[in-house]
Design a protein around this nucleic acid. Structure first.
Lengths: 196, 196, 196, 196
DNA sequence: CATGAATGAGTGTTCATTCAT
DNA sequence: TATGAATGAACACTCATTCAT
């Protein structure tokens, strides 16, 4: 009778351990041994649950993205149009420990993607998903007549996403200068400008 | 009479080779052997010109920053206020091969800085320098009565820099979506909004 | 169930391999790769059992010293006073293959200690331990009235230890000239002179 | 017209620089670059005056031995028999900075010789020369009726040399414990015992 | 004659990977 | 299933050596 182990649960444990390490010390410091130790296992266990290290890292990225998108319904509940847009973008800013970890992890993978085509392809898919979400709510705003006539949805979307990413990266590089409140205020102001 | 070699020129040669490798394949792929080979030398040559790999990498970052700031005078020549602000920010966008390399390299060092306090300190200093430059021209704009009354210079500065960084990172991650023209148009629009 | 390996036994195995290499070809020739090969393993195995090469080398020295002091009880069993002194000193002379290796290893570490303060400190502690052992038996001899009245224990101790070291180093440098018998005879004569 | 350089003088300069480095920091730390720098030259100069590094090191050893034997006439002037023996041996003890350097260098080469047959052969020749010197004076002592009847010249010689080497190595390993006076006193006592 | 640029083999070390248990 | 022993390639770095100038 084999030992009963919840395979998925174990994978999740390890993936989260990897995520913590990447977020806190960077991809360079995220060794197989380190990740296994962080998860409370020995290094060999990685072999059971992942094809190789790249597989594990990719799953750590996917898990972070899943966690983020898992909050979408919650943060946009009852909202539509610009309010929903603002909620989505604000939720992505590194305004607390969890979101800082997410941003820091994201920046690590941005860097790695630039030298890894396969990873880049994954990243683009993930980004496209988020873009569609925001776009949908932006279209609602236009349809609802919430936005000024001069507002071009394509431009607005692109600028908002860029602002979100720019604020995110600067906030994790200089947390002292960009407090959570400041980040939100700067983003809110940008959204506010779209209103008629 | 010793072999005639311009020490600084050779350093520059190697630093640029390092820069190319970092920009194209990432810091992870930038090995001492690889950099030496890219420069056309054997690995041992690094020992002559740099204290260690970290020294070389730091100089590659510094060289990229020097190159960027070396263009400041040129791009802002004859300009002041918002025109100068726009020129500075636009010059930093990855709108051509050179600037793409600069941005890609920068993203690599962002990631590494998040796990390396010493590097982070260097990065912050460098960022502060650029910030001051932009700020100076923004203050000119305010002094010249170029900006709308409601414009807060601190907020404007922060948002512009965030937008620049966000556009930059998005552009190198998805060059097909964010053409040079698009980047500049989005930035220009943001600057334009500051005007009275 | 993990692969069953006696961790300490494996360490000992590698430490002994290191000891052999050091004794036979010197510290300079004792590379990590060479030691691992001598032990019958690949180079990476060192990483499992030792913090670094210095740790391994230090353990090789400590093991040699432990081996030597492990014989103390045996060689002095039933002896006291000058007989015990002679037994201790004679046991340290390079009079057989094992003791030659021990002496050759010791000379390697003498040399290294002269350029390495940390190692020197370790060496001095170890030497002090042996000195105390001999001293204890010398004091017995004095207390038992075994020694001549003119004998100063401090001087006798120092001269005996110096003679032992001098014979040892000469014997490994010129094994043909200083046979085991000769070494013992020279030492015995020196001990004999202490008697009343 | 070629630059006029005293070839031998330059060699001597470099050899002495090597000797200083070996004595102070050990053979391991005596790099070609370091030796050249200590001598005030660039590393390439070694190539002009020495076949290779081993050649240079060997000459550093030879120079130290020449220096020592160069003092023989002086220290034995007007002396014969046991007085000359004592003078020769005492002159070899590490009783001042110069002689400490000589001893420290010697210990380095003892260690290296144990793993290098060619060097060992050289060392044995050098040691034989010193041995003959001491032996000659010891024979004088016997011929002069200076020694006790029971004294065997072979044994006495061997023990004196061993004592000298043992005191030397212990003195450089623990300079605080074995002062110059102590070394000389211990040696004198041993010589004294030979007298009738 | 002297320099120091350049080489490349060798070093200690790290680490993803494999696999017997 | 989980361990951690073992591997071996890759890494940064050191250094004796060569040689154009």
């Amino acid at each position: 009778m084999p030992k009963v182990v919840d395979h998925d649960e174990r994978r999740t444990e390890i993936v989260q351990a990897a995520g913590r390490l990447i977020a806190r010390h960077g991809l360079m410091a995220a060794t197989v041994r380190g990740i296994a130790a962080e998860a409370g296992y020995s290094s060999g266990v990685i072999d059971h649950y992942f094809a190789d290290k790249d597989d594990l890292l990719l799953q750590a990225l996917a898990a972070s993205h899943r966690r983020i998108s898992g909050r979408f319904d919650e943060v946009t509940r009852g909202l539509r149009g610009l309010d929903a847009v603002r909620a989505l973008l604000a939720d992505n800013l590194p305004t607390d420990a969890t979101r800082c970890d997410e941003t820091r992890l994201e920046v690590q993978f941005w860097a790695r993607s630039l030298g890894d085509e396969a990873l880049m392809a994954v990243q683009r898919q993930e980004m496209a998903g988020f873009r569609r979400q925001v776009r949908r709510h932006l279209d609602e705003a236009v349809a609802d007549g919430e936005t000024a006539a001069a507002v071009d949805a394509d431009d607005a979307l692109e600028r908002l996403l860029a602002l979100m990413d720019g604020l995110s990266v600067r906030a994790v590089l200089e947390p002292a200068r960009l407090t959570a409140e400041r980040q939100r205020a700067l983003l809110d102001e940008e959204v506010h400008r779209l209103r008629r």
